[in-house]
Amino acid sequence: MAEVGRAYEGGRARSRRRSHVGVHAILIPASLVMIAPFLWQIVTSLKTLSSATRVPPSLLPEGRWDNYGRMFDLLPFSDQFLNTALMAAGRTAGQILLCPLAAYAFARLRFPGRSVLFGLFLSVLMVPPQLFVLPQYEITASLGWLNSVQALIVPGMFSAFGVFLLRQFFLGLPRELEEAARLDGAGPLRTYWYVMLPLARPGVIAMSVLALLWSWNDLFWPLVVNTDPEKMTLSAGLAALQGQFQTDYPVLMAGSLLASLPVIAAFALLQRQFIQGIAHTGVKG
């Protein structure tokens, strides 16, 4: 979907300098609705509880930076940060290693039962993840993995979605290079590694960005499997904190901002890849 970005530039270049007052009149208020919650979150995170509950409210923050510090008292924030980062990185690395490999096989190699196996992979895609939770929990417990980083990572390393997405991608690649490699005597592994995987890079990047995003934000599984606060992820830690009567709104706002900041920063850096990744999921196939 590199085209998404490019089409914009093209459109702008041959713009006929029409005025778009009407369009802006819709888009500006709409984007205000999109951004206002975040602005209000920042403002509130810098207030005391008494001033946050003042009616009518003040629109200005008050420089109460200690709300951010209090997050570190209430939660083992640094541990949870690290767990979340390890989970996101581990799952993504696993998917990068495994998904394109299987996807390539499904797209290009011929073997008996390929369709049936692919059908099985696809069926996983249809099943709501909650269906896996109870047995996955039992498996994790029997491995002695409860409250561990591997419990967060391992079940999430295998993605039917990644295989599906990349298979579509491989199917769309030209066969010529692959045939040429084969003529040179390269086996499937070499062909995959030196020819096809590099060609599939945009697809793999798209998948990785999504894997990173989804695992960072994942709640259900981490909530269930890691109950020791030092082994929790940020989502689960924050969710638990929210239930506490003691935790006041300004502190919650500070915490939720801190927790989502890394992904927002990643998005700022990798905006194109994020957007292409999402656009890819829309490719009908």
Binding site: L238, Q242, M253, A259
Partner: peptide, 14 residues
């Protein structure tokens, strides 16, 4: 796109 990348737990809290 900002809400899409923000952690759902954080979104819900806000």
């Amino acid at each position: 796109f900002l809400p899409v990348v923000t952690m759902p737990v954080a979104v819900a809290m806000v």
